[in-house]
């Protein structure tokens, strides 16, 4: 294929939220947001105690980066966190394409929300599970937490045993979407 004439570097970036809401910023490094038809400046500050905050329309917003890995971010503003992946127009397109393909046939993994110990597994491989049903009991911080399924489907694989210690984000169970 011949070299297509095109300009490579575009500075537009999109923050895509977990609920698929896209926020596009043309030139984030310039610290300006187009907001309801006007361009509003964003100021980033750090106070003498070491807190970072954003000043936006004369109000202070406490800022904390909870997680940051490659293009995945979890940003906390005033104590509420928001997860995003930062995408370029190209990678966003890719994401949409792949989502379309995945929706048709896909298994969902249930991951450990925190480190802990498996106390009980309430499902069996091949069994059915409904959305919201408890599938595993995980003990962490002296509390027994019910891990529930967020999809309805068939238990495809169970990757842990009773009394196993698991790390955060370890895959516990894989469910084939019904």
């Amino acid at each position: 294929m011949a070299r297509a004439a095109k300009k490579k570097k575009t500075t537009s970036l999109i923050a895509l939220s977990a609920t698929n809401k896209a926020y596009e910023f043309k030139k984030p490094l310039e610290k300006k947001i187009k907001y309801q038809g006007e361009v509003v400046e964003i100021k980033l500050h750090e106070d003498s105690k070491g807190f970072s905050y954003i000043v936006w329309k004369k109000k202070k917003y406490l800022l904390d980066v909870i997680e940051k890995k490659q293009n995945r971010y979890t940003i906390m503003i005033n104590g509420v966190w928001h997860s995003f992946t930062v995408e370029t127009p190209i990678s966003l397109k890719r994401k949409r394409y792949l989502e379309q393909q995945n929706n048709s046939s896909s298994s969902v993994s249930i991951e450990a929300p925190m480190p802990g110990k498996i106390i009980d597994i309430m499902v069996e491989e091949g069994g059915e599970v409904k959305e919201g049903e408890p599938i595993i009991i995980l003990e962490a911080m002296k509390m027994q937490n019910e891990i529930t399924s967020h999809v309805t489907g068939i238990i495809h694989a169970i990757s842990v045993k009773k009394n196993d210690s698991v790390m955060k984000d370890d895959v516990l169970i894989e469910i084939k979407r019904a």
Binding site: M1, A2, R3, A4, K6, K8, I90, K93, R94, K95, Y97, L98, Q101
Partner: peptide, 28 residues
């Protein structure tokens, strides 16, 4: 002739798999 080899359909197909073309990759 080399330029004409550029095939928009093939490019779209590559994109629809979530992939970039070889030239796009080199550019990045």
């Amino acid at each position: 002739a080399h330029n004409d080899q550029h095939d928009a359909r093939a490019e779209a197909k590559q994109h629809s798999k979530g992939k970039l073309t070889a030239w796009e990759r080199i550019d990045i």
